[in-house]
Design a protein around this nucleic acid. Structure first.
Lengths: 103, 103
DNA sequence: CTTGGAGTTCGATAGTTGTATAACTGTTGT
DNA sequence: ACAACAGTTATACAACTATCGAACTCCAAG
């Protein structure tokens, strides 16, 4: 049988670690869930309505999520619209299974 | 017919968080990779040969990994054999995609 | 221009955690 | 019984991080 060509390029080791750390905090995971649940991009102040944290904290988490590549932030006027990058999340799960699951 | 044990048991919210945290440390992830790469169970002192950390640290990481349910430790005489629980890892990736990826 | 809202950056703090050493328990072989 | 080895537990510490308030920038509407 032919060797399977991976559909997605493997993540760099550094990005893999960044993603793992980004996902490790429950609050940040919850933020990611809200961002992913929106069909369209999600402005930060909407996130703030759903969590009892300061806007500085939201800003910090968004930065971590985009540093990991999980979220793509776009400035639009006064708003910062965040969009979930599903391919990156999928690449992470694939890599995770490849590393540990794939004996 | 008898009830089958599901191959992918649902994760509790608590276990989900524990797994995410367990995977967040690169060293612990590396340990998990070694454990998963062994066909048979993997004794701790073998792990120690591969990483420049004390046995206390190994012990600590193993404890975290089993607390998360990612590895199953079994005492056998003087050895502690660890086995990777692939179903749990797969359940985690499935839940992760369901939470964020599943719009 | 002024006011207010959206988000960032800074400094500080409290809590978490990865790591080591040392003392301990338990097992195996002599 | 003794020694050597496998792993645990306790304690301590340094590094990291989630969080906040306050001061800041940038943008839009009057």
């Amino acid at each position: 049988m032919t060797t399977r060509i991976p559909r997605r390029p493997a993540l760099s080791a550094k990005q893999f670690d960044l993603i793992a750390k980004a996902l490790a905090d429950p609050r940040r995971m919850a933020l990611l869930e809200v961002i992913g649940s929106k069909a369209e991009s999600c402005p930060c102040h909407v996130l703030r309505e759903q969590f009892p944290v300061s806007k500085a904290t939201i800003s910090h988490h968004i930065k971590e999520l985009s540093r990991a590549g999980l979220v793509e932030p776009r400035r639009e006027g006064q708003f910062l619209n965040c969009e979930l990058r599903r391919e990156v999340l999928e690449a992470y799960t694939a890599e995770l299974l490849r590393r540990a699951g794939g004996k």
